[in-house]
């Protein structure tokens, strides 16, 4: 229990919900892909990539100071990194600079500079990612072509090397069956969507990741503006969907929100998908004044820190599904225990 309390106290900055539209945009940010100019691209250099590693170490030490050791973490077998930083899912985190800034190896095999924060993307967060990559590019030579821009192993990342990402909470669109039309519309604009825990068209927790890779033809600032417009568009769509949901099913929203909070306070066995769904109802309930305000930052942290791999990390061993769900329930009870009173007054 002591360990679960310690874990519960970890609240990464990017889950702070301090940005714009924090209720709808859980986090957002930018990834900047860069590859070194010498030799093969990183992951293709095989085991003998000492030269590239040394070059990258120099670059990162220049950017983040001599204490910033560039070391490949052993793949997090217990998944702590991936659970705490889900936007880095499938990524080997090479260096964490704090404040939502990380350097890692993406599944596309380029070196990536990740800059994320709570809420909709803000100018400083965007600049932080670009500047970190820029500074590293002064210490080490990046693969660059005058016509094409920055060169990366994934051809879709040639040019600015930018990829914008946001995790959005869309209960209105989920419960009014509007997600598929949204996905189709966004795909036309080159935006990919994915449901949390791979759920679709009913993503767990009504959480949807949107990813926008602008390609080589846009200036970084233009790409950022486009991404902001995309987010605003989705936020507006979600607002409309919530109004429709509230008009047709206010009593159900109120019921589910209150029941979710009550259930989490007493749950003894709790799946991650179930937790995500309940937190979603609670967020919606708060947004629609059906529940008294709850700490958004804690809810965000809870969602990720109660993930499967994190539970295993806390236990220090592999867990069966049942053991994991029991541990999660205990963890959640410890966090949620003091949250809001549930009133039976109508």
């Amino acid at each position: 229990m002591k360990e679960t309390r310690r874990v519960a106290e970890e609240k990464p900055e990017w889950l702070s919900s301090t940005g714009l539209y924090p209720e709808t945009v859980v986090y957002s940010g930018v990834e900047v892909s860069r590859s070194l100019a010498d030799g093969r691209f990183w992951a293709r250099a095989g085991m003998g990539r000492g030269k590239q590693k040394r070059a990258a170490t120099r670059a990162l030490a220049t950017v983040f100071g001599p204490g910033a050791k560039f070391s490949e973490l052993a793949r997090p077998a217990r998944g702590v990194v991936w659970e705490k930083y889900p936007y880095l899912k499938g990524v080997l985190v090479l260096f964490s600079a704090g404040g939502g800034m990380h350097v890692g190896m993406g599944p596309r095999e380029a070196m990536r500079f990740y800059s994320y924060s709570g809420g909709a993307i803000s100018e400083p967060v965007f600049q932080r990612g670009l500047e970190a990559a820029d500074s590293a590019g002064r210490a080490v030579e990046f693969a660059y072509d005058r016509e094409l821009g920055f060169l990366n192993p994934n051809l879709e990342e040639v040019g600015s090397g930018l990829c914008f990402r946001a995790l959005m909470h869309l209960p209105g669109m989920t419960h009014t069956d509007e997600l598929n039309p949204l996905r189709e519309g966004l795909e036309k604009a080159g935006v990919k969507t994915e449901g949390f825990l791979r759920g679709w068209p009913r993503p767990h927790g009504c959480l949807v990741t949107i990813a926008y890779r602008p390609g080589p033809g846009l200036r970084p600032a233009e790409a950022q503006d486009s991404f902001r417009e995309i987010i605003l568009f989705v936020v507006e769509q979600e607002k409309e969907a919530r109004s429709a949901l509230l008009a047709s099913a206010e009593a159900i929203v109120e019921d589910r929100a209150a029941r979710s909070l009550a259930t989490l306070k007493v749950a003894r066995v709790l799946g991650h998908d179930e937790l995500a769904d309940m937190l979603s109802w609670m967020r919606l309930g708060v947004a629609m004044d059906a529940l008294e305000p709850l700490p958004l930052r804690e809810m965000n942290s809870l969602l990720f820190l109660a993930g499967r791999n994190h539970m295993r990390a806390v236990a220090g061993k592999d867990l069966s599904h049942l053991e994991e769900d029991i541990m999660r329930a205990s963890f959640v009870r410890a966090v949620v225990g003091g949250w809001g009173e549930i009133s039976d007054q109508l």
């Binding site: 590019g137 002064r138 080490v140 030579e141 990046f142 660059y144 072509d145 005058r146 016509e147 094409l148 821009g149 920055f150 051809l155 879709e156 040639v158 040019g159 600015s160 080159g190 390609g215 080589p216 033809g217 846009l218 200036r219 970084p220």
Partner: peptide, 15 residues
């Protein structure tokens, strides 16, 4: 994929 491929960003030089 993208219609356009000319990179319009600020040119990159290491030095």
């Amino acid at each position: 994929r993208f219609g356009s491929f000319a990179y319009p960003g600020e040119p990159y030089f290491k030095d």
